[in-house]
Computed example of a mutant assay.
Amino acid sequence: MCGNNMSVPLLDEAVTVSGTEKETAAVIFLHGLGDTGHGWADSMTSIRLPYVKYICPHASHIPVTLNMKMMMPAWFDLMGLNPEATEDESGIKKAAEDIKTIIEHEIKNGIPPHRIILGGFSQGGALSLYTALTCQHQLAGVVALSCWLPLHRSFPEVCLGASTGHKNLPILQCHGEADAMIPLEFGGLTAVKLRHIVNPQMITFKTFPKLPHSSSPEEMAAVKEFIEKYLPRI
């Protein structure tokens, strides 16, 4: 995809949905545990804007503790799915740096950070929140679906080394009310935590009745509205 640019392996493998006209903005969207970028590339195609490039990278296969050390696509290891579970701190930080290399690549190619939205579902949404809040650039926004904030105990201190502009980082957080995998309560706790890090007016927390640990057309319509708002046509 990026020719001989070997410094961004995640980009070489990523599924990219190109714009149908001059690309002036980008959405980087991260899949959940055990998934790939293909399904989310299809979802992005269904809500695409003609001037936006959508990048859906694939996570590497690693052994996941939560699933009896089975090898599967994962951005970092998971020990448990509750707020008190032990976290893979080094894995989360390395994954965030990998995503930041994609952001830097897009910036070098002429798309400024304030024209880049980072998003993801489940583990990918968790990583998108952590990456955006620790990035040296202020991004256009974050789409966090059915997820949580990793290493939540280290915030807001960890933001101090990042852009001071994170106070005004727009965040769209969505969660299914019937999510049995990552219960709505965890999404609510995440929203409360985020309001201590980011200006509360910048956070939108939408819940969807009867929605399990997945997405829906209503949720994708909310995502499209958020993207249109924060990545308007130039």
Score class of each variant (00 low, 15 high):
Trp148Gln: 08
Pro170Thr: 10
Gln173Lys: 11
Pro150Ile: 11
Gln201Lys: 14
Lys206Asp: 15
Leu151Asn: 08
Phe205Thr: 05
His166Cys: 02
Gly188Cys: 07
Met181Cys: 05
His152Asn: 12
Glu185Lys: 12
Gly161Pro: 02
Lys210Glu: 01
Thr204Gln: 15
Leu184Gln: 13
Pro170Leu: 02
Phe186Tyr: 10
Trp148Ser: 02
Asp179Tyr: 03
His152Asp: 15
Gly165Val: 03
Asp179Gly: 13
Gly165Leu: 09
Glu157Gly: 03
Ala162Asp: 01
Lys210Tyr: 14
Phe155Pro: 08
Lys193His: 09
Gly176Asn: 10
Ser163Ile: 00
Thr164Phe: 09
His152Cys: 05
Thr207Arg: 07
Pro170Glu: 10
Val198Phe: 06
Pro170Asp: 03
Pro200Asp: 11
Ala162Glu: 01
Ser154Trp: 06
Glu177Gln: 10
His196Gly: 15
Phe155Arg: 01
Met202Asp: 07
Trp148Cys: 12
Cys159Val: 13
Ser163Phe: 00
His166Phe: 15
Pro183Asp: 05
Leu184Ile: 11
Val192Arg: 09
Phe205His: 08
Lys167Glu: 14
Pro183Met: 03
Ile171Pro: 00
Met202Pro: 05
Cys159Leu: 14
Met202Glu: 13
Phe205Trp: 04
His166Ser: 07
Gly188Thr: 14
Ile171Gln: 01
Ile203Gly: 04
Arg153Ser: 07
Gly165Ala: 13
Asn199Met: 14
Gly187Glu: 05
Gly176Ala: 06
Gly165Ser: 12
His196Pro: 03
Lys193Met: 08
